[in-house]
Structures are given as structure tokens and as C-alpha cells.
Design a protein around this nucleic acid. Structure first.
Lengths: 336, 336
DNA sequence: AATTTTTATGCAATCGTTGCCGATTTTAAC
DNA sequence: GTTAAAATCGGCAACGATTGCATAAAAATT
């Protein structure tokens, strides 16, 4: 059985008490220089490392933060996690990453597990399936520091960071209009997500500003968020079967953008006939065929901002009551 | 501060001893039915959850397993992780995911942290940058259960699972030959990885079997493994500047495949002039332009096999000395 | 030389949980 | 009615590390 050296082992070997060894290792002022050297040397020799579990139990601090995202396979989230880690490691924190696959049960299990494992705080982007936030609310009220990113919710009063979804959607829609398209459909994500509605609003505003009549039949919700390809293909098929069919599609979600590209390819649609623009953080979106304009979110930066907010919460000596919601702008990449 | 109810709290409230409460909650045979009901009800009422940290400290078991992969943004790994989780959760284990970004220092830090956090076992796919395996070897000899997957190494005698890299490379190369290509270049990954050499061997064997002369100048190593796009573009540019330039490229790595596609696009190469086939588990590889044939690994299954091996190690009552290395076959998808 | 101060170390409690042993009460058996 | 055997439950210790308090020895002061 794997059993690392403990303070007691050192104490026994050196005929000292555990307390002396502990203080020597922490360079306590009350320990003589010789004893310190003795202890330090021996500790190095047996490769002593303090046991984080024991420390967590005693201090209720673990120097680790929990991350909860819907899906690691989604580029946006893996990029955001890289951003989180870049700061966290620098500040001496470890990260524990979990994914929910957009299931609210999995989310509940993961969040509770992290809380019980006494992470010092939580970074979470909500699952599409979640509509009851009481479990999070309760944890937050009990004092667990939480920062929401990307898919944020109003129900919890804390630091939040997300993208300018309204602006991103506006710009993408506008680009389609400026390319001469007038019948622009919208493929949308699960309606309970904040980002879904903000992007919908951006799309609508662009239509209004350019005096394009709104047509309800051009809007389709893919509530499974692109986890189900067939749902997206059916929506696209439906749209293209309309009497007055669209000449462009704006897609307000990363995964659905990919599925839509695949659907258009499978249905053999001429890219000139139907232009597409969509949110996507895939690192190969520029290589896709049919090609598309895409709105890229600042995922890495969002991770960095989120973890910095969380560390502020965790390390603050006094309770923080003034919270900020940061909005990061997006980048529009036009189709070549 | 966040502070969940403990056994002591329940004991105090119910005027029982902590040990009694503990046994009642675990349905111990020595506790009367009334006391059990009393305790259970109250526990539910205060939402008691046993503290995993305290249990870890006491039992040296955490019912969590550590996962160490080079990069989450690599589809292969995020798929493998999904496979791991699918089994782990079912069996009552939690997963702690970390990534190394192919840095051996990060790998060392992450592995040690996981070991100290007393994970019950480790699933690891080695970083490209690692050449000294003593830290892992030591942990393994000290009794930490370890299973290697995908990027396995000979230095540690334990359960392993990887793909039929030889066969996959052979089949991909063969498909290029059968399509009439005779001057097939190879873009290869970091040479210290096991998979790199197996794939190289498969490529070579195909050349031999089809009596195609081997040309050393057609082989390029991208030791940064596609983390550096420029390295790949330079290699491609080099190859295509040869007097007797290749008419096909086989790419033996996921990320490099993508970079190569991008390079060919940026360099404006006609897909007919230069055919490509490569390893890739990207879920959009079929949508890429220029298009390619690709070898897909059974990533999800590999994760499942790996975690089952690990659980066998963890839960075995007697030390296991006979180890198996499973080889999963690959799927070749031909370019349309 | 006696007392105070400084220096160095040990003791015991704590975090939450459980294994082991012992104590008490109830029930059963003769 | 005495004794044995279950049935219930409490107390203590331990997992590894830290820390306030006490104590011991050494050094400094009077």
C-alpha cells in the first residue's frame, strides 16, 4: 500500500515531538536553527510532503477550486478551462474539473461532491437542462464562494462573467444582411439559457434596425443544444422546405453551428444559396465546408476573469457584497 | 462560512454518542430499529452528508480516481474521459481531471498532487515532453494503482490499453497507395512517444508490402505535436518544395492532421495534387476542406477499458502481478 | 545565588469518522 | 432464581497536521 512519510514518522525517527517537526518545517520562530536543519534535511530525504487531506480537514481550506462545465468536448469550455488553470496554478490553487453533459442531475451530483470535498470555491457554467437553482442558491447562501461564467443566471447574486452575446448576435446578423441576405432564419439553443435569449435579442435588433420583417416561422429552437444531430437536421430540413425559404441562417450556439454545417452538407445545399453565420469557438471552424462566418468568444480570457473573481471572493477577509458582471466582447470572423 | 452538519452535531442534538450515530447511519447490526429511524430521520432533516475528506483521511480511500491527459482540447482525450466517467460514476467513483499541456513539469506536479490527495488510482496518458519516468515508477512501486492508456510506456509494468497504431497507420498508408499514390510523405509526432514509432512502423510496412521505395527525406517530425502550427506549415512547405515532391501525406497525429489541412489550405494546394490521410478523432474531420481520409481511434471504449482495469487493480484484495495490454482496433474512414 | 527572561520543546485538542473494547441492560435458558 | 447470552450503546483512540498553552532548560539579570 502506498504510504507517504508523515510528520509523525519524522518525529519518531528524530526523537522529536510532532509539534516541533511541524513548526520546524514551517520555519517557526521558536525552533532552533540546528533542529530546523535537522528536520528539513531528513524531510527532504524521505520526500516528505504535507498531506493535503489532513490539512483540508483541519483548516477547511483545500487550495483547490471546482470547475463545472456542460461538456469538455466543447472547445469553448476546454479553452476557458485552460484560462482558469493558467491563473489558478500561478496562485497556488489546483483545479478539479467535472462535466455535466447538460444534465441537471449530473450537475447536482458534481456540485455537491465538490462542495463536500471542500473546494474553496466553485466556477460554474450552467447546464441547459437545469431549471431549479435552489441547490446552488443554498450552497451560496451557506457561504461557498461561487462565480458564474458564460451561462449565467440571475437567481444568484455573485460575480459573473459572460460574453456580449447581444452584440455578437447583432454583428453576425448584420453581416448577413450586408451580404444581401434578407430572409434570415435563426437556429437557437435551449430557451432556459441566458445566452440563448441575449443572442435572440441581438438577432431581432439587427432585423429591426435594417427594416427586415420578423417572421416567426424562421426561428427554430434546438433544445438539446446540438447534442442531438438529428434534431438540428430536422430543423434545417424544415426551414428549407418552407414556401418562402430562408437565404441565410444565423446559429446562436457553438455545437449547433457544427451540426448545421453538417446538415447542409448532407442535404447537398449550395453554399451560395444559403449563407450561414454562427457562434463557434471550434479551432477548425475556418476549415469547414460549407464555410461560414463565425462569432468567436474570448473563452480563455473569460476563464481568467472568472478565476480572478473567485480568488478575490475566497481570499477576501471581509464578506463581499458588491458584485460585478463583466461582459467580454466577441470577435466576428467573416466568411472568406 | 459554509459548514455542513456532522455526525457530532447529530449526536449532540439526539443525545447519543458519535459512534452510535455513525453506526445507525451505516445501518450497523448493533443498533436498535428505533434509534436507527430516529437518527436517519434527523440526518435527512439536516441534510447530513458524510464528509469525504474525513473518510479519506481515516480510510486512505477516496473513491476518486485521477486522470492525467496532455490536452483536454484534443477530442481524443475528451472522448476518452467521457468513457472513463461513464463507468466510474456507475461504480461509485468520482474523477479528478487534470491536463499537462504536454509539459513534463506540469505532469509531475499534477501526478504528485493527485497522489497526495489520495486518489485511489491513476489513469494517465503520457506527455510528449516526458522522458524521465522515475516519478511515476516510484509511485507505482509504492503501491499506487496506475493504468496507462493511449500513450503508454514500457518502463512501468501494469495494465495498459492503446490503439492498434501499427494497423491503423498501415491501413491509412495502404489506402493512399490503392488510390494510386506512390510518393507518400509522413508527418510524425514527437519521437519519444510509443504511438509515434508504432505508426511509423505501420507506414513503413505498407511501403514494403507494396514495393514502394522508402525515401528518408519524405519523413518529417513535428516534435511539438501540433501545438505549434508554424512547425507543421514549415514541414509541409519543405516537403512540397522538394524536387521530387510527394503526391500524398500520411499524418500520424491528431493535432498535426488538422494543422496539415490548414497548411495545405493556406498554401493553396489542389486536393487532387496532394492526397492526405491522417489520424484524427475530431468530430468535424468529415467536414474539413481540403478533405482527408482519417483513422479514428476508439477513444470512448479506450477510456472504459482503462478505468475497468484500474478498478480491478484498486478493488482486488490480493496484489495483481499478471498484467495485460489491450490493443483496440481503429476505424479507417475514406475520403469521399 | 536567586530570580527573571529567553529559548526550545512537549502536551493535548481539533477537524469528522469509524474500529475496537467495554459497559449496561434486556432477554433467554436452565 | 441464577447465570449465560444477546442486544444496545458509549468511550477511547486513531487517521495527519496545526496550534494555544504549559513546561523545561538554558541564558541573562539582579
Amino acid at each position: 500500500m502506498y504510504k507517504p512519510a508523515t510528520i509523525k514518522d519524522i518525529a519518531l525517527a528524530l526523537k522529536l515531538s510532532p509539534s516541533t517537526v511541524s513548526r520546524a518545517l514551517r520555519d517557526g520562530y521558536e525552533i532552533s536553527t540546528e533542529t530546523k536543519k535537522l528536520v528539513m534535511d531528513y524531510a527532504r530525504q524521505v520526500n516528505y510532503k504535507s498531506n493535503p487531506i489532513a490539512l483540508s480537514l483541519k483548516n477547511r481550506r483545500s487550495y483547490s477550486i471546482g470547475i463545472v462545465v456542460p461538456k469538455l468536448a466543447n472547445s469553448f469550455f476546454s479553452q476557458a478551462i485552460a484560462g482558469i488553470e493558467s491563473i489558478a496554478y500561478e496562485r497556488g490553487y489546483h483545479t478539479i474539473i467535472t462535466q455535466t453533459h447538460d444534465s441537471s442531475e449530473r450537475e447536482l451530483i458534481n456540485v455537491n461532491h465538490l462542495a463536500q470535498r471542500s473546494v474553496d470555491g466553485l466556477l460554474i457554467s450552467m447546464s441547459a437542462g437545469t431549471s431549479d437553482y435552489t441547490f446552488l442558491k443554498t450552497l451560496h447562501e451557506d457561504g461557498l464562494p461561487i462565480v458564474l461564467f458564460d451561462r449565467i443566471i440571475d437567481e444568484i447574486n455573485t460575480f459573473k462573467v459572460t460574453s456580449d452575446n447581444f452584440g455578437g448576435a447583432y454583428n453576425a446578423t448584420e453581416s448577413l444582411i450586408k451580404a444581401g441576405r434578407k430572409k434570415i432564419a435563426l437556429l437557437s439553443n435551449a430557451p432556459q439559457l441566458s445566452i440563448t435569449n441575449e443572442r435572440l435579442a441581438g438577432y431581432m435588433k439587427a432585423l429591426v434596425d435594417y427594416h427586415i420583417p420578423f417572421r416567426a416561422e424562421l426561428i427554430r429552437n434546438c433544445s438539446k443544444g446540438g447534442n442531438d444531430y438529428q434534431e438540428v437536421e430536422d430543423a434545417v430540413k424544415d426551414l428549407l422546405a418552407l414556401a418562402n425559404k430562408p437565404d441565410a441562417i444565423f446559429i446562436s450556439s457553438d455545437r449547433i453551428s457544427i451540426s448545421c454545417v453538417r446538415a447542409l452538407k448532407n442535404l447537398n445545399f449550395d453554399p451560395k444559396e444559403i449563407a450561414i453565420a454562427g457562434f463557434s469557438n471550434s479551432d477548425v471552424v475556418d476549415l469547414l465546408q460549407p464555410s461560414l462566418s463565425y462569432v468567436k468568444q474570448k473563452s480563455f480570457e473569460m476563464g481568467q476573469v472568472a478565476v480572478e473573481m473567485l480568488l478575490k471572493l475566497i481570499e477576501s477577509k471581509y464578506p463581499i457584497t458588491e458584485f460585478e458582471t463583466r461582459i467580454l466582447d466577441t470577435e466576428l470572423h467573416l466568411m472568406r
